[in-house]
Design a protein around this nucleic acid. Structure first.
Lengths: 182, 182
DNA sequence: AAATAAAGTTAGGGGGATCTAATTATATTT
DNA sequence: AAATATAATTAGATCCCCCTAACTTTATTT
């Protein structure tokens, strides 16, 4: 009973939306799906039939609407991608939240797991590396506004040598203590 | 005589491809467009008619095929986006070139100019900020492989304090000299 | 120049995602 | 409970992009 497993990015969008709605409220309304996706209700009804046949949702007209295990996995995964990409856009590039959210929608499909993992690591790295972190991201913002300024740049480096470095040495000591305990 | 200006991302892909081919060789062959886009020849012929009607190309069957000014602008712009995104993926995230190229295809549409500009700035900033640059990207690679290692991290910081900082101070002096000359 | 090969086009069809208009089912008011 | 409002579905159509098969035009051989 292997059904046509082909999943379009539109279908992924529907599953993501249903996933999000199911997290928010009890009942998932066709109206709400339509609103969120910017389509009309009959379009949703159509797609629900389709997703039902393919085994991604349990759906009885006028009655139930629920993700199957398979559908849930996909909805969740797309949502995860969405969050990651939006994080990159808001936290690193400092793009406005709603613009970032919109763009994330367009990028969340098709991106390979490899690239996605790299992106996760990159966000982590920028935030945890003592060379960078929030202060560096602040400098990036200044750079966007004023370009490269040697004077500012030296200031940043002074600050780094004096403050951030000490913090790391502190962190190192904590690490060592932890090792001794275990 | 205002035609239907609506431009789909598929149409953008065709214009990009034609732009690239026109840069490479003299004659733009339907066969080559088809090959590059992974479609059959009749599909291309269809689209060319469409693009012709909409004023993006000049096209006489069995004869000419050329981008109009309008079509050129779009083809060029999509190509630019493609390059920028691929740069980010290869130069910053260090993704394999061909995978990056593939992913760039999927992301190059829909991305807002704002985000694109931010991305350009970001690539520039990472590469030109003395805190980061190539060495920092190398550290990122290590981080991806081995995670966060306090020991390594301290080494990096030492190296930074000793070498990279000096380089910047040198740069500053050059700047000052330039100012005195002018 | 005739025969063959390659490139391009036409014709007709299909799947995916959307719409409007009309209908039916469910919820809410009075 | 009847009337009304809201939500959901069905039916039928459109648009976009792709396909195969058959045909025509252009290029290459012999």
């Amino acid at each position: 009973m292997i059904q046509n497993q082909h999943l379009t990015s539109t279908m992924e969008d529907y599953l993501e939306t249903i996933f999000i709605l199911s997290r928010e409220k009890g009942a998932i309304r066709i109206k709400n799906i339509a609103k969120r996706l910017g389509v009309k209700m009959p379009t949703v009804t159509n797609m629900l039939k389709n997703l039902n046949e393919k085994g991604f949702i349990d759906y009885e007209k006028h009655e139930f609407l629920e993700l199957t295990e398979k559908g849930l996995a996909i909805g969740k995964e797309i949502d995860r991608r969405h969050e990651i990409i939006r994080s990159f856009l808001t936290d690193i590039l400092k793009i406005d939240y709603w613009l970032a959210d919109e763009e994330a929608c367009k990028m969340e499909h098709g991106m390979s797991p490899e690239t996605l993992n790299r992106l996760i690591k990159f966000i982590d790295f920028v935030q945890s590396c003592p060379m960078t972190g929030e202060s560096w991201l602040k400098y990036f913002n200044e750079y966007c506004q004023f370009g490269f300024e040697t004077e500012k740049c030296l200031e940043h480096m002074e600050k780094f040598s004096k403050e951030d470095k000490k913090e790391l040495i502190l962190r190192k000591k904590k690490d060592e203590n932890r090792h001794q305990l275990s």
